[in-house]
Amino acid sequence: MSKLETADTTIIRPTSELDLGRRQMFRVAGMTTLSAAAIAVLGGCRSMAATPMASEGDVNTLNVALGLEHEAINAYQLGAESGLLQKPVLDVAVQFQSHHKQHRDALVAAIKSMGGAPVAEKSMDDYAKELNAGALKSQADVLTLAAKLEKGAANAYLGVIPSFESKDLAQVAGRLAADETMHWTVLASALKQALPEKALTFGA
């Protein structure tokens, strides 16, 4: 049985997790001040000094993103444990899963720093049922599911950009979408799917 957990050792934990004492959260008239730490966590840049305002809506949107990342991590886990993925495809899946784990960790830290409660991960059985994992019979089936989820995630991140009150979070959503697009491109190539003939197909 293949395990993806070895990828944990390569995860770079968000530095702000070591910096809890410096986080400050202010609530004013239902608004949450997004700490510089949250932006730094998500943006991967501690030098960002801006302290923009973020609404509870932004926290809700980050939590939806976290739900997507939980699902993606478990989808790759299901694929790996299915025994259907062969090397080097399995190695790529492990790498993509590690990206999603880094997204998850950054989102959790940011949501907490904004005073929100991160949405919990469901059980592996729940994800297996929701994703109809029992129907996966081949490596191509696993990759097709992964490609569908990655493309959907890219479109989801692009789609919520206009809804963020914080421009910094909007930019982070763009960066997350770029990661998902990278994953989709590799998966589509592995499946020998044709690239889109037209431009601007993502987020449309």
């Binding site: 939806v64 739900g67 997507l68 699902e71 929701e130 109809n132 989820l149 995630a153």
Partner: peptide
């Protein structure tokens, strides 16, 4: 499809 399916509660 990232969040929804016809037949399963997901995100």
């Amino acid at each position: 499809i990232a969040c929804h399916s016809p037949d399963a509660n997901r995100v």
